[in-house]
Amino acid sequence: MFKATISLFRKDLLIEFRNRYVLGGIALYVLSSVMVIYFSLNYSDGLKEVNPVVWSIFFWLIILFSSINAIANGFFREPAGRSYYYYYLASPQAVILSKLLYNFIFTVLLILLAFSVFIVMIGDPVRNLPLFLLTALLGGTGYSFLFTLMGAIAARAGNNATLIAVLGFPIIIPILIFITKLSAASMGSTEFSQEVVTNLILLSSFNVMQLLLAYILFPYIWRE
């Protein structure tokens, strides 16, 4: 199963690099969203007083919308018939694990890209970089796991892109609460306080729970 997961993951990577315009499109999506925020802050004279909470809310909302787009693309670019082909080649667990791994790496890269653009254009209020990177890692895991499962469901319902948002947004709120709190904390002080540790543990357990649910439930979505 491990070998199957790795080769499916490589296949996704290959498709991505052969269609580089999709990759470029997502990068441009992030860039232009940051531009929109930059100009709306700049021309309303809000840029002088961007406080950490506003910064992190903007940041994670951009990640939310760009990752939902990226993951939806990953599901919708494959025609429905091809899933039958994979069904003969690999177990559903291998398929979902490769998708989760791929989307996780993609989302984390997206976060790093958006972070560097944010630093350049809007400012760098982060004082505790290790905590911020840890938050980015866990938040990226949460986003990618949730949208992978919701994308798999929506792909079955006739590739309806609205459906991912409808299904995913109410469920993303706990993750959003944890990560906006954590990234605001990484801008407040350089310490790892008790509350931060609690939030990190809660966020990681939420991710583990999502992983388990995806692993158990995906075979039911997969089989027709």
């Binding site: 079955r156 319902a157 006739g158 459906l163 409808v166 299904l167 439930l217």
Partner: peptide, 22 residues
């Protein structure tokens, strides 16, 4: 909404059950 957007009976049952557990 999810149930409404699926037309096939079996698929509707299966996928909405998965979402319900989640």
């Amino acid at each position: 909404v999810l149930r409404g957007s699926l037309s096939d009976e079996i698929q509707k049952a299966k996928i909405s059950a998965v979402y319900n557990v989640f």
